[in-house]
Lab assay of single mutants.
Amino acid sequence: MKVIFLKDVKGKGKKGEIKNVADGYARNFLFKQGLAIEATPANLKELE
């Protein structure tokens, strides 16, 4: 799953980066902790 990092995550990505991560990792950790959001077309447009 592609995500947009909202904060730096050690060993995974830095704020503003778009990366592929495991679905479970994204849903169970990154999204719940507010560290990333899903890289949907709408979210990508907001990032620009």
Rank of each mutant, 00 (worst) to 15 (best):
I4T: 02
M1H: 04
E48T: 13
K2V: 14
V3Q: 00
N43G: 08
G11D: 08
K15Q: 09
E46S: 12
E46N: 11
K19Y: 07
L35E: 02
E48K: 10
I37H: 03
A26I: 09
G24W: 15
N43I: 14
E38R: 09
F5A: 00
E46A: 14
D8K: 04
K15R: 12
L6E: 01
Q33I: 08
D23L: 14
F5P: 00
F5E: 01
Y25I: 07
I4P: 00
D8V: 03
N28L: 11
L44Y: 06
I4G: 00
E38H: 07
I4Y: 09
Y25P: 08
F29D: 06
T40E: 04
Y25M: 07
K15G: 04
K12F: 15
R27N: 07
D8T: 10
N28Y: 12
K45W: 09
I4N: 01
L35D: 03
E46F: 14
I18N: 02
M1L: 14
A42I: 10
Y25E: 09
K2P: 09
K7G: 05
L30M: 03
G24D: 15
A26N: 03
K14T: 08
D8Y: 07
K32F: 07
E17Q: 10
L6N: 01
L35P: 00
L6G: 00
K7Y: 11
L35G: 01
A36R: 00
G24T: 14
K19I: 10
I18G: 01
A39Q: 02
N43V: 12
L47P: 05
G11Y: 08
D8I: 03
K7T: 11
E48G: 15
K7P: 00
P41M: 10
I4K: 04
P41F: 11
V3K: 00
K14P: 00
N43P: 04
P41G: 09
E17G: 02
L47I: 12
A36W: 01
N43T: 10
L47W: 14
K45S: 11
F29V: 15
G13Y: 13
A39E: 03
A22K: 12
R27D: 04
K32E: 11
F31E: 03
D23G: 12
G24E: 15
K32M: 11
L47A: 07
K45T: 10
M1F: 08
G13F: 14
V21Y: 05
R27W: 11
K14L: 12
K2S: 12
G34N: 09
V9F: 04
K32R: 10
L44A: 05
Y25A: 06
L47F: 13
E38P: 12
L47D: 07
A42N: 12
E17W: 03
L35V: 05
F31H: 02
F5V: 01
A36N: 00
K14W: 08
N28F: 11
G16V: 00
K12E: 14
Q33P: 02
K2Y: 15
K19E: 03
E17H: 04
A39M: 07
G11H: 08
T40V: 05
F29A: 06
E38D: 04
K32W: 07
D23A: 15
G13P: 00
K2A: 11
N20T: 15
L30T: 00
K10R: 14
F5M: 04
A39F: 11
G13A: 11
L35Y: 08
K10A: 14
G24N: 14
K19V: 13
E17K: 03
G11N: 10
E17F: 02
D23W: 14
K45D: 09
K7I: 10
T40F: 05
E48A: 14
A39W: 12
T40D: 06
A26L: 13
L44N: 05
N20W: 15
E48L: 13
E17P: 00
G16D: 05
K45I: 12
A42V: 08
A22S: 14
V3M: 03
K12M: 15
V21Q: 03
